[in-house]
């Protein structure tokens, strides 16, 4: 049954295995909570299976997954605003970032910089592609990248190589 549908010439399993890390990164960066991130991760791939859009290429599939994951996170936060507030008090299981890791510094940056930095450095997207995915102007993405780098520097400390 899994092989019935193809997503940019990939079976569902192949698509999941190939882009799981990308979707996980988006969800973790946005939600910073393991359980919430897992929910959004599952929702994203559920949508992929149910909607089954006609993808032109794997890049198209990847961009679609990132966008859907971001929307899932936004709607998840909106739906669970009250529960999230309660969980914060209960110290829900946060995603364990190593303080020596750059990801920790990235997770401390404001949301609007985090998305751009994540896509640029982790997913190796170009500015133009980030602009398309986030539906922002290229110059906006550039300025966000610049400010984001400065914020990470201030958080992480030290000097860039």
């Amino acid at each position: 049954m899994n092989g019935d549908r193809l997503f940019a010439k990939l079976t569902f399993e192949q698509a999941v295995r190939k882009y799981a890390d990308t979707v996980t990164g988006v969800c973790v960066m946005r939600l910073q909570n393991r359980a919430d991130a897992e929910d959004c991760f599952q929702n994203t791939f559920t949508k992929l299976w149910l909607k089954a859009p006609d993808f032109e290429s794997e890049e198209h599939l990847k961009a679609w997954l990132i966008r859907v994951a971001m929307h899932e996170c936004v709607s998840y936060i909106r739906k669970n605003r009250r529960a999230a507030a309660l969980e914060r008090h209960e110290k829900a299981e946060a995603f364990d970032f190593d303080r020596s890791d750059m990801s920790w510094a990235l997770s401390r940056t404001p949301q609007k910089y985090r998305d751009v930095l994540y896509l640029y450095y982790c997913e190796q997207y170009k500015v133009r592609e980030i602009a398309i995915i986030l539906q922002k102007k290229e110059n906006t993405v550039k300025s966000l990248l610049k400010r984001g780098r400065e914020i990470i520097k201030s958080i992480y400390g030290g000097e860039e190589k």
Partner: peptide
């Protein structure tokens, strides 16, 4: 002085159970 490189930023490793659960989606 601590040095860092932005290329150290790497994608997150997805837990195996997440992937296993996601692969069950078509059977639901």
């Amino acid at each position: 002085m601590k040095e860092f490189d932005f290329s150290q930023l790497q994608s997150f490793k997805t837990p195996g159970e997440w992937i296993e659960n996601a692969l069950k989606i078509p059977n639901k």
